[in-house]
């Protein structure tokens, strides 16, 4: 899965990931390979991801929106 985390001021992350966990407005959820297309708003919290080589990374955001489609994931966030 290809993930991009973009804020208005820069790109926080781009690359292949195995797992993404995001703080959705209706509750935190994870996206794995072949997730159904989804658009969800995000609340303040932490985005956690695991890259394909097994490294874990976290980013704090102040809210935003996530779009996942065809294993392309975009997170538009406002960095905290």
């Amino acid at each position: 899965m290809y993930l991009e985390i973009i804020t208005p001021e820069n790109k926080l992350f781009t690359g292949e990931v195995r797992l993404v966990q995001v703080p959705g407005t209706k509750g935190s959820f994870e996206i794995l390979h072949n997730h159904a297309p989804i658009i969800s708003s995000l609340q303040e919290g932490t985005v956690r991801l695991i890259t394909t080589d097994g490294k874990e990374k976290t980013f704090d955001i102040k809210g935003g929106v996530i779009e996942a489609h065809n294993n392309n994931i975009t997170i538009l966030g406002e960095s905290a």
């Binding site: 159904a36 297309p37 989804i38 658009i39 708003s41 489609h69």
Partner: peptide, 19 residues
Amino acid sequence: ADYIFEPDKDSLLGELVPK
């Protein structure tokens, strides 16, 4: 695509317009 919208389209739009 057949997106899943969370929470729902109206409130999503309500949140995205100010953004």
